[in-house]
Design a protein around this nucleic acid. Structure first.
Ligand SMILES: [Mn+2]
Ligand SMILES: [Mn+2]
Ligand SMILES: [Zn+2]
Ligand SMILES: [Zn+2]
Lengths: 150, 150
DNA sequence: AGCTTGTTTAGAACTATTCTAATTCTCACT
DNA sequence: AGTGAGAATTAGAATAGTTCTAAACAAGCT
């Protein structure tokens, strides 16, 4: 399983291709979300980013995240009404939320399973997006997932 | 497929079994959510319930819904950060959100598929809950689902 | 330099939901 | 039937994540 890491240059290309500008803020937000592959909230990202760019504002973090989501470089993940989390893993995958810690874990979701899920839909229903999420307990030492870095 | 409809008596039993009181507010909220089997928000339910009990408050609707969810008589359904919706269909099922209208449709989710989904979890992950949701377009005339009335 | 357009920023606004504290109700027990 | 204790309801305030606003800033172009 290869590991197509996003270089900073790839970000610049994706942005300019969409008619958007590669600003320092967008670059640092992207760098910070990619380098620690968890599922931080906007607040958590704000804190991490401020360490490198103390003048950035929370509004900008939200703006950058929205841009990154639109460019398809980051996924938004919601669990009930908890604060939105952001996921840099672009492979199709499901999420498992550990009830004890609140943390999200990536769960591999093979293409054939996605196909089977799609078959659940009656004729006339056309899904552009499928979301699968688990909630429960994870044994402390349980290894997360294949961890393909996109 | 039989159709186990919840009578008002069943609600009373479920409540008293849990040490809760069967109040007129709880009964009317339950009646209103069951009689039109869609996926209303708290606001929408509040409007419907007020027609029958003009003095009820929104806080009470929220309180009653929380109670009904705890008793397992109603499911909570979230889509991204949109207002929580409430679902009276207790059979295991997935949801399809029509992007055009914002409406939710129930999608049958057979037990064997649930079992297969569970197999996606690596050892050490124990799911108490699985949630599957689709987003896309539904052809106007598409028939919703098996519609087992619980 | 001036213009244009996109971006950032601080803070206000928004909104679904929860909390508070006072009142009312329910029901088991006389 | 009447009381009392605890449960539930209510109006309105508070909360909190997110979005909006409007002013300042940046970069490219003429
Ligand atoms: Mn947060
Ligand atoms: Mn609503
Ligand atoms: Zn993820
Ligand atoms: Zn449903």
């Amino acid at each position: 399983m290869e590991t197509p890491v996003f270089t900073p240059d790839a970000l610049v290309k994706r942005l300019t291709d969409s008619g958007l500008r590669p600003t320092p803020q967008r670059e640092v937000v992207f760098k910070v979300i990619v380098e620690k592959r968890d599922h931080p909230t906007a607040d958590e990202l704000f804190a991490r980013v401020k360490a490198q760019m103390p003048t950035i504002s929370l509004a900008t973090v939200y703006n950058c995240l929205e841009t990154l989501v639109q460019c398809g470089l980051v996924r938004q993940v919601n669990f009930e009404r908890a604060p939105t989390r952001y996921c840099p893993n672009l492979c199709q995958h499901a999420h498992f939320r550990d009830e004890a810690t609140g943390e999200l874990h990536d769960i591999d979701l093979p293409p054939d399973m996605i196909a089977r899920l799609r078959e659940l839909l009656p004729p006339g229903f056309n899904a552009t997006d499928i979301e699968l999420s688990f909630r429960g307990q994870a044994a402390p030492g349980a290894v997360p997932v294949s961890h393909g870095t996109n």
